[in-house]
Write a protein that binds this DNA or RNA. Structure first.
Lengths: 227, 227
DNA sequence: AACGATATTTAGCCATGCCTAAATTTATTT
DNA sequence: AAATAAATTTAGGCATGGCTAAATATCGTT
């Protein structure tokens, strides 16, 4: 019998499961093995462990789902991850494409006091550098914003970048090269008919107004708030 | 053959070895097992691993010592530990008796960039909250201060608390209850003859001058700079 | 120098968490 | 409904890093 869920592996599994559950996916050994770059057989073994620990409900051949305990633990990890990313970007000067991997390590540091004090030090930021909401110290994870994908915008609409879907470091770096970052306000100048590309106008850091063509693939990943 | 020294266990061994070497002790399987709360037989096994990795020189039955590579790694861990402790105390509001355990976790986060940026954010502090010197980013660990143990002071001498020997959390908390902390300036009023106890005078946070009797055991652990 | 005490190493075992290959269950197709 | 395909589990193995018990080396004493 296992005695604790506080192991890096187990926590990684919980996070992976929550991530897929939030996307509405079914939690299978295959889907988790893909997410964690392991093999389905390894997942079966871990599902038994997590099930014994009452972190998930697991029915062989039928899939798994988080219990309340497991969900709480997973949300705590999300909270730590996002707060550390915020700290690294807003206080230490990292780029938003440089912090994910280190946050993956920092989120496994066990100390509720530490993360709550870090949260307070930063003034309880509601969102992380990628626009994702940060759960509060009681585990509430809500996002009252109504964000829409940029590719659904029409010509003439004004949006404000507030989030990025499925962000990986390479993509974030790519966005940075286009001058795209959190809070960027832009106007849709033209939606190219043949493939949905966008011509947008925005004001850069230097106060200079710029025009850029954003590809379909790019705008599908961008979340904006519109006025 | 092992491929990396970046495992928590191996790093804990390196730190333990450095710690004993600095105290001038011989590195035996028994001494390390006591330090790490394991058994000598386990240490023998790890010594072989660390030796294969060229982190230590190990002669069976004769003891071990750090190689330059092992020493560098150990010093890097000390640097991370002390910088994180400084951050927690000076920026997040932890007490100096509350940070050791969490720093033990944080020091294993692998990112030279992170720790160098944290160092810069704090303005490259030279000492941690317990008065221990913080190695710089190139691994230089020097302490040019001439600190002396308080119990060697004479009546009438003025000292400034700059360090604590062999600090554990309980002892640090105890010190805090006596109003003792880094930078405290005090005057020796009287050295009791029968057992070396001290009567000292100092000015508290509130500006009020206080007198305290410090025990022999306590002052032996305190390092001060004298004028 | 030899004895006993102490320290150290070896041998063999356990748990975690990963793997591959084989067996089994479930799903799909005809 | 039976056969095949796909997903999942079981079985058995490996590496890390602990453990105990037994064997062996070193040290201190006489």
């Amino acid at each position: 019998m296992n005695t604790s869920y506080k192991s890096k592996s187990r926590q990684d599994y919980l996070k992976a499961i929550l991530s897929l559950e939030l996307k509405g996916n079914k939690i299978t050994t295959t889907s988790i093995s893909e997410k964690l770059c392991t093999k389905p057989a390894s997942v079966t073994g871990m599902f038994k462990v997590l099930s014994d620990l009452e972190l998930i409900k697991y029915q062989p051949y039928k899939g798994a789902k988080l219990t309340q305990l497991g969900r709480n633990e997973a949300i705590s990890l999300i909270r730590k991850h996002r707060l550390w990313e915020t700290f690294m970007v807003d206080y230490l000067g990292f780029g938003w494409d440089e912090v994910h991997e280190v946050a993956e390590q920092l989120e496994h540091v066990e100390s509720k006091d530490l993360i709550d004090k870090l949260d307070a030090y930063m003034g309880n930021p509601p969102f992380d550098p990628h626009g994702d909401p940060i759960p509060d110290k009681d585990g509430n994870l809500t996002d009252s914003r109504r964000l829409i994908q940029v590719h659904t915008l029409q010509k003439g609409e004004v949006g404000c970048i507030q989030g990025v879907l499925g962000s990986n470091d390479t993509f974030l770096k790519h966005l940075g090269e286009f001058g795209i970052k959190m809070g960027l306000v832009f106007t849709v100048k033209k939606v190219f008919e043949y493939d949905g590309n966008f011509l947008v106008e925005f004001v850069g850091d230097d106060g200079v107004q710029r025009e850029y063509s954003w590809s379909r693939k790019l705008v599908e990943q961008l979340l904006a708030e519109i006025n």
